[in-house]
């Protein structure tokens, strides 16, 4: 397995599997879990938002948006 990198370093269209999630608000973490985003799940970066706004991610065919500051806590290993 490759070394882990921040999710935010992925180029739009690139995919990685979540290695760790740090310092995340518990409500958000629960919601992400509900949507199938947790350690081990495969996410891909879709798009950066306007004016430093939310990033769009895809996981299991589900598109979702979260803020950059929270996405910063997600580390992925590039597959």
């Amino acid at each position: 397995m490759n070394q882990s990198t921040p999710l935010l370093s992925l180029q739009p269209g690139a995919t990685g599997s979540i290695y760790a999630i740090h310092d995340m608000n518990p409500i958000l973490r629960r919601r992400l879990y509900d949507l199938g985003v947790h350690e081990g799940s495969v996410v891909s970066m879709k798009q950066r938002g306007p004016f430093g706004g939310p990033v769009t991610l895809e996981c299991n065919g589900q598109l979702l948006g979260i803020r950059v500051k929270e996405a910063r806590g997600i580390e992925v290993s590039v597959c």
């Binding site: 919601r31 949507l35 939310p54 979702l64 803020r67």
Partner: peptide, 10 residues
């Protein structure tokens, strides 16, 4: 700190 997460349906 408020949080934001939104599901984007097709």
């Amino acid at each position: 700190a408020n949080v934001f997460i939104v599901e984007l349906p097709p």
